[in-house]
């Protein structure tokens, strides 16, 4: 059974949904404390959403130095699956496991609503169960989600196929598509092997039909499939 560690930092608030999404997908999910120095025998780790350390200084800036992050980096370097959702994405950027940074939303307001995102890459550890170019509607909830990087980095992300999710307009809807002013409409990115991924939307929050949609659940079924096939880990 695929073992997935979900890290709880002081101020995390999406660890329960993440654990449940993994369990529903058939994985063995374990909550790991930020002070732990190893991830047990985990095949994958999720850094969940929330406000670690109250977002003090910059979101993710203090969490990146938590003891558990050494083990997260070791897993990433070994080709293991590392998934950062929202605050987890911010932490991965601060830790330089992914390039760029997440800044205050352009409109200076917290944004909590559904967004339409296109799956730009289906060979990452958490997107294999989506169709190439598929557009899904899942929620965001962040104040600091505006993806920023210099032009050279952005060009490299596009060229190397490291943009994982992009905010898009769905024809027939009037929803403003880019909710925070992210450069190039980027909602999520990954490393070259697709094993370290980070994104702002919350698939774990819309992952069972009882809530009206399970559009996000395939992130977790994808993860189970990828890890079980031994491609990551």
């Amino acid at each position: 059974m695929t073992r997935v560690a979900v890290v709880r930092f002081p101020g995390s608030n999406c660890e329960t949904e993440s654990l449940l999404a993994v369990t529903r997908a058939g994985g063995h999910a374990t909550l790991v404390d930020y002070r732990d120095t190893d991830l047990g025998q985990s095949d994958a780790v999720i850094l969940p959403g929330g406000f670690s350390y109250g977002d003090y200084l910059r979101s993710g800036a203090i969490a990146r130095f938590a003891p558990v992050m050494t083990a997260v980096k070791t897993l990433a370097d070994a080709g293991g699956a590392v998934i950062g959702i929202c605050n987890g994405f911010q932490i991965l950027c601060e830790a330089h496991l992914l390039p760029g940074a997440l800044q205050h939303n352009a409109q200076q307001r917290f944004a909590a609503r559904p967004v339409d995102v296109r799956i730009e890459r289906t060979d990452s550890v958490c997107t294999t169960d989506y169709e190439p170019g598929e557009v899904i509607r899942i929620p965001i909830a962040h104040g600091e989600g505006r993806y920023v990087a210099d032009e050279a980095t952005l060009d490299a992300l596009e060229r190397d196929n490291k943009v994982l999710l992009r905010y898009v307009t769905v024809p027939g809807t009037d929803m403003p598509y880019n909710p925070n002013g992210s450069m190039r409409d980027i909602a999520g990115i990954c490393n070259s092997t697709g094993t370290v991924v980070g994104f702002m939307p919350h698939p774990e929050r819309l992952a069972e039909q009882e809530l009206g949609s399970d559009a996000g659940q395939r992130f977790f079924t994808s993860l189970m499939r990828r890890v079980a096939s031994g491609v990551a880990a």
């Binding site: 910059r58 203090i62 130095f65 950027c93 601060e94 390039p99 940074a101 800044q103 920023v148 210099d150």
Partner: peptide, 8 residues
């Protein structure tokens, strides 16, 4: 290392 983010 911590107080400023060199990216931004």
């Amino acid at each position: 290392r911590l107080l400023a983010n060199p990216v931004t």
